[in-house]
């Protein structure tokens, strides 16, 4: 490794570094608008909405059970959990798993494909474009030294172990832009823009959600609930409060 610096041509800055960044930004903006166009409004399913609400209400029943009279509590418990038509009771066999439901609903599959396509196609194209025109040379230099471990990150596409790590290859510059522009996008496109890939990944992983399982879990915890009416205690407490006021 020699002590002298590599001098980068200013033409590289003008014709590689800046165009690459500008193109990445423009593609990001374009993707945002295209995905906005393709986004289809999906009406929520009545059953799914209702299940969510049932679970919420059952949770409140569980938390506040001791504050209502015993009779009313038991009638509610029957309403929620009885084996014939309790609203938390899921008949056997009807508990289809979410995976199957997803495949049986073509809309959902199409929607996911659209999302994926709008993510993958532009990325493949830009990567091919960068590879074709700008592969294999140094495009920039970062103003601080780095350790060898960063070589694979910053000098992707150049197989030289003698170049100082602070030099950035053009392909690496592409990757840095790809992942680093999110902040800029949220600045110019508003907070919740569609280009946020990380968020999309999170959504995808949420697909394992199974409402039937939640319902029966809630049913079990209501079934074992002990009712201990809290109100009789309140009479004593109220007496104490009033004594303090009167005296």
């Amino acid at each position: 490794m020699s002590g002298e610096d590599l001098v980068l041509d200013t033409a590289i800055r003008d014709w590689v570094l800046i165009p690459l960044s500008v193109v990445m930004v423009l593609i990001g903006v374009l993707r945002y608008f295209v995905s906005k166009l393709m986004r289809s409004y999906q009406a929520p399913d009545q059953k799914v909405v209702r299940d969510g609400q049932v679970i919420l209400r059952a949770g409140h029943l569980r938390a506040g059970a001791n504050f209502i009279p015993p009779k009313t509590f038991y009638s509610r418990r029957t309403y929620f959990t009885n084996e014939e038509n309790g609203i938390l009771h899921v008949p056997k066999g009807q508990a289809q798993n979410a995976q199957a439901q997803m495949f049986s609903d073509p809309n959902m599959a199409v929607d996911m494909m659209k999302k994926n396509l709008s993510m993958i196609i532009p990325q493949t194209l830009t990567f091919a474009w960068v590879n074709f025109f700008f592969s294999g040379f140094v495009a920039a230099k970062i103003p601080f030294p780095l350790t060898q471990r960063f070589r694979s990150m910053l000098q992707n596409g150049i197989d030289l172990s003698t170049v100082d790590v602070s030099y950035v290859s053009s392909r690496s510059w592409y990757f840095l832009n790809l992942f680093g522009l999110r902040g800029l996008f949220s600045l110019i496109l508003g907070e919740e823009n569609a280009t946020d890939d990380a968020q999309r990944m999170m959504q995808m992983s949420g697909f394992g959600f199974d409402p039937a399982k939640n319902l029966s879990a809630e049913k079990d915890s209501i079934d074992i609930l002990q009712h201990d009416w809290a109100l009789p205690k309140f009479e004593k407490r109220a007496e104490a409060v009033l004594r303090r006021i009167v005296s």
Partner: peptide, 15 residues
């Protein structure tokens, strides 16, 4: 029962 709930109101509002 009503009396109990009045009592709890007294408790919750501090009289």
């Amino acid at each position: 029962t009503a009396k109990k709930y009045y009592a709890s109101t007294i408790d919750l509002t501090g009289g």
